[in-house]
């Protein structure tokens, strides 16, 4: 699962730009990832300028 660190996130939108699933949106001042659609390709992690996004082991697994 991809998790967001709200302290580091500046809502710049890079992750939205590269998400092949279009499952990230910036709703006003809040970054939202729709985990059901996420395929964990990590494009978003790669382009984040401040490591605000991180992949962690899903609880379910």
């Amino acid at each position: 699962m991809i998790l967001t660190n709200k302290v580091l996130c500046d809502l710049c939108g890079n992750c939205v730009a590269v998400c092949p699933q279009s499952c990230i949106e910036i709703n006003h001042y809040c970054l939202k990832i729709s985990h059901e659609q996420c395929i964990e390709c990590q494009n978003c992690v790669a382009v984040c300028p401040s490591a605000a996004l991180k992949q962690v082991q899903d609880d379910k697994n």
């Binding site: 710049c12 890079n14 730009a17 590269v18 998400c19 092949p20 279009s22 494009n43 790669a46 382009v47 984040c48 300028p49 401040s50």
Partner: peptide
């Protein structure tokens, strides 16, 4: 389709 490849976006601060 407007999605960018990571190599086609500059990450800035």
């Amino acid at each position: 389709k407007t999605q960018l490849r990571p190599c086609d976006i500059d990450s800035c601060a």
